[in-house]
Design a protein around this nucleic acid. Structure first.
Length: 278
DNA sequence: ATAGGCCTGGAC
DNA sequence: GTCCAGGCCTAT
């Protein structure tokens, strides 16, 4: 479940379990994960310390006391689980950090597409990323700048981590629904009002998940009906106007949106257009 | 721009 | 069985 809010929540779990502790051993339990952590690398982690756990976009970085770092990415299905001393391993545990105090941190990842890579000291493990989606650095000016040369649909552009870091397929659709912007619009054709609406839409979509983690992370009895306004709601009624939500494919991924809402951009309230007279 | 690959599991 | 999946990389 990994877009920015989910990764941030998972990072908080990892911090609670592992930050400031020494590593007893690292067990790589799935062959695919040995690409990033071959046996020599995982063995070398024993005795190192986890100084800090940071998040950037959908990435996490474990800064180790040796100066090395671990770059963690959940891809589609990764997550952290805390394991009590002597406790059972969760299903689909792929990598296990055993810590000196007996607790353990499990990378749980049913599809095993995620992974962890060890980097030497003095090398920045992070790829080039755009501004954090929930930060002040992500605003209409920086977004306009990033989109200036991009003709791809705005929905596709929002998934580009070089444009904005942390937005994934679900929140991209959700954000454009808040913004009432057609996901198929060419990114570099958006006007100032639309850019502003997209920025606030992204922040609203992510903000709701960040503020109410109990609603978004496996809480029983809470359905997607509460979580999402458009994602995975094809054919269901738009929560604003009751029109059926439609699904289109963009860049080989599903996009959900309300055509009715997108054809009636905001006017009276919220982000408003100016300078479009005459 | 699009397809394929990486992996597994759930829905149909 | 087939299709789809909250990500990202590479090749064409």
């Amino acid at each position: 479940m990994p877009e920015l809010p989910e990764v941030e929540y998972a990072a908080s779990v990892a911090r609670r379990v592992a930050e400031g502790k020494r590593i007893g051993s690292v067990e790589v339990l799935h062959a695919a994960q040995r690409r990033g952590l071959p046996p020599r690398a995982s063995r070398s982690l024993a005795g190192d310390g986890i100084a800090r756990i940071e998040r950037r976009g959908k990435y996490q970085v474990f800064r180790l006391t040796s100066g090395r770092s671990l770059l963690v990415h959940f891809r589609m299905t990764g997550d952290w689980a805390a394991v009590q001393p002597g406790g059972e391993l969760p299903a689909h545990t792929r990598i296990l950090f055993r810590l000196e105090d007996g607790a353990a941190l499990a990378l749980v990842d049913s599809r095993a597409l995620g992974g962890i890579t060890l980097y030497p000291p003095d090398i920045d493990p992070l790829p080039d990323l755009g501004p954090e989606a929930n930060s002040a650095d992500f605003n209409d000016a920086t977004l306009a700048d990033a989109l200036r040369t991009r003709r791809v649909p705005i929905k596709v552009a929002l998934l580009d981590q070089g444009v904005v870091a942390g937005v994934g397929n679900i929140y991209a659709s959700e954000a454009l629904w808040y913004a009432r912007v057609d996901p198929r619009r060419p990114a570099n054709a958006l006007g100032p009002a639309e850019l502003r609406a997209v920025v606030t839409g992204v922040k609203r979509a992510l903000g709701k998940a960040l503020e109410h983690p109990e609603r978004y992370y496996g809480a029983d009895g809470v359905s997607d009906a509460v979580r999402f306004n458009v994602y995975d709601r094809e054919g269901k009624g738009c929560r604003r106007c009751r029109s059926p939500i439609v699904r289109v494919t963009q860049g080989a991924r599903s996009t959900y949106w309300c055509a009715e809402c997108a054809s009636h951009p905001k006017r009276a309230t919220g982000s408003r257009s100016r300078g479009t007279t005459a």
